[in-house]
């Protein structure tokens, strides 16, 4: 087996309450994800799925353990500059609530990560328009998020995650706020992105949604209890 694109070794993560009490969320997660794999992370609420995703997305530091991204241990990286670089170039994030900036148009929302990557205005807006068009939003470039339907907003959000051409996409319940039909449309997009070579890690509750994935990792109480969970049909 080639070097996994993502590898976690015995990752622990706790939250600390104001009174100093420790709430452990992840209690020693180890997992490997291969390049171009489409993995769904499932499990009960409170099992640590979102926290895991935030750690993979370098939004959270881990308390202990190792996080290898493309073979490099980035779990020890603390400096903002490097973490921001990884979030910007290596990883694309897609959220349940889309998390678009309301005052910016669809085009500008998509172009934002490229702005932080230092791409020129003309270049990044051309590229943003291209990606939005490929997702069927060529008529909606200048719409603000509140003028778009949920499905359209999620497609804008996916376009944003793609603008800097990252290898990894992290999706946190991407269909959670959508009806099943639009949810299925969004999953088709993910399916195509996988075919184009992206590595996708998706947190979800929905079994229908999880069926698009190559493999399901099942989390319970902060531990991986199944690396290749099979949905009973």
């Amino acid at each position: 087996m080639p070097t996994p694109i993502i590898k976690l070794e015995d990752v622990h993560k706790s939250y600390f309450l104001a009174n100093g009490e420790e709430i452990p969320i992840l209690k020693g997660i180890s997992l490997e994800i291969a390049e171009n794999e489409f993995v769904a992370i499932m499990g009960e609420s409170g099992g640590g799925k979102s926290t895991l995703l935030n750690i993979l997305g370098c939004l959270h530091p881990l308390n202990s353990g190792s996080y290898f991204l493309e073979g490099e241990d980035i779990g020890i990286i603390q400096d903002d500059y490097s973490l921001a670089y990884i979030r910007n170039k290596k990883i694309g994030f897609i959220f349940q609530q889309f998390n678009l900036i309301q005052k910016l148009t669809a085009l500008k929302n998509v172009a934002l990560p490229a702005f932080y990557a230092g791409m020129s205005k003309g270049q990044r807006e051309d590229r943003a328009a291209e990606i939005l068009s490929s997702l069927g939003l060529e008529e909606r470039l200048d719409y603000k998020p509140n003028q778009l339907s949920g499905g359209q907003q999620q497609r804008v959000s996916i376009a944003r995650s793609l603008i800097n051409n990252p290898e990894i996409l992290l999706a946190d319940e991407p269909t959670g706020a959508l009806d099943s039909k639009t949810g299925a449309e969004v999953m088709e997009i993910f399916y195509n992105l996988k075919k184009e070579g992206k590595t996708i890690i998706m947190v979800t509750h929905g079994h229908e949604v999880a069926k698009y994935a190559d493999r399901i990792i099942w989390l319970k109480d902060g531990l991986v209890i199944d690396h290749d969970y099979k949905i009973q049909s």
């Binding site: 921001a84 979030r87 998390n99 900036i101 932080y116």
Partner: peptide, 16 residues
């Protein structure tokens, strides 16, 4: 705050 969170998630540095 939320906007700042989004900006950070898509790659904004503290400096930005």
């Amino acid at each position: 705050t939320k906007e700042i969170g989004i900006m950070k998630a898509v790659g904004a540095k503290q400096k930005d």
